[in-house]
């Protein structure tokens, strides 16, 4: 190959690259002009967006210690296997609590966080001993026939609506009606609520998520969300990550997430109807976006299952692991709070 031929081909390569670049650019240009832009029409709603402020620090749950003391041994449990499946929100509590329990009693406990629905299904079929769930089994059409399950309420998980950093100073509080409007597609721009002129990016959880079921029941009042516009993120962690890179975004996470240092400047909790997700507001019955964390057994609990449940409900676990993992105690709930979440 001669030098002259080589230079010809370089020239041709560059011209081809130029053609390609032109094609790419023109394609980009045309696709953005065919955009179905949604424009917000500003309505003069009296703004309640800053009527209440809640900070991540106010959601902090203080734990006396992070390690529980070991239980006293229950006789006759050595070698018993305890299989646990279900809610990924409650699984961390059992995952940590079963370690000292197993050491003392010689039991073998395994945990698998496959989701609340699968937990209920597996305990009903006898595949596991304990099924963990974010919701009452009566609340899901696929599990409502499992009437022989026995409920043990282990903890309370509080959830909070969170917004992205660019709107956290202008959107600090939403009413239930505004939230319904956002999640059903009535409001698509923050200016419709008296906020900045930004499209609302709504972030939701997958259809069968236990957290989504809680949100739908206690915040949306059972209204079905709009199908079209919302982003779906697989896990609470993914919701938090998507919020941290989005603008004008709203989503919901367990309160433990807003306390994590990596999200301190990217996601911000807001109030619902003037109340933040604090322990005081939940216990007083004013803040309803929380759920019991249930451990279900098929029929009355067997000795090993009962011993493990009793240990998780004991003072030492309830004052160490429960707060340090971000849960509230069931025993702290007032009658007013319990009245907002009646057993179906």
């Amino acid at each position: 190959m001669t030098p002259t031929r080589n230079s010809h081909f370089w020239a041709k390569t560059f011209s081809a690259a130029a053609v390609l670049a032109t094609v790419l650019l023109s394609a980009c240009g045309s696709s953005s002009t065919t955009a179905g832009t949604s424009t917000g029409s500003a309505t003069a709603t009296p703004s309640t967006l800053t009527a209440c402020t809640v900070t991540a620090q106010q959601l902090t749950i203080t734990a006396a210690s992070t390690t529980p003391t070991a239980p006293t041994a229950t006789a006759g449990l050595t070698g018993t296997k305890i299989a646990i499946d279900g809610s990924s929100a409650l699984e961390p509590l059992f995952k940590q609590a079963h370690v000292p329990f197993d050491q003392v009693n010689g039991t073998v406990t395994t945990t698998n966080p496959n989701g609340s629905g699968n937990g209920l299904k597996d305990v009903e079929s006898g595949a596991v001993n304990i099924g963990l769930s974010d919701f009452f089994y009566q609340q899901n059409s696929a599990t409502q026939g499992f009437t022989d399950l026995v409920d043990h309420q282990m903890a309370v998980v509080a959830f909070t609506l969170v917004v992205s950093s660019d709107i956290h100073s202008t959107v600090e509080n939403l009413t239930s009606d505004q939230i319904k409007g956002i999640y059903t597609g009535t409001y698509t721009n923050w200016s419709q609520l008296g906020g900045p002129n930004e499209t609302i990016t709504v972030i939701n959880r997958p259809l069968a998520s236990g957290t989504r079921a809680t949100f739908k029941q206690y915040v949306l009042g059972g209204v079905t969300e709009s199908a079209g516009q919302t982003l779906t993120q697989d896990t609470t962690g993914a919701v938090a990550t998507a919020l941290s890179t989005s603008q004008g975004a709203i989503g919901y996470v367990a309160t433990g997430f807003v306390l994590q240092p990596q999200f301190a400047t990217t996601i911000f909790p807001i109030c619902i109807d003037g109340y933040g997700a604090t322990a005081a507001n939940i216990n007083s019955g004013n803040y309803k976006f929380w759920s019991y964390e249930h451990a279900y057994t098929k029929g009355a609990a067997q000795p090993a299952e009962q011993a493990l449940i009793n240990y998780v409900l004991s003072d030492t676990v309830q004052s160490s692991l429960v707060p340090s993992l971000g849960y509230l105690k069931v025993s702290d709930l007032t009658a007013a709070a319990q009245a907002t979440h009646p057993t179906p």
Binding site: N114, G115, A142, T143, P206, L207, A208, G210, T232
Partner: peptide, 15 residues
């Protein structure tokens, strides 16, 4: 499939 299979419970139409 990724988003919904994990927590879909049979018997249901979603599943």
């Amino acid at each position: 499939l990724l988003f919904n299979f994990k927590e879909a419970v049979p018997p249901s139409t979603l599943y």
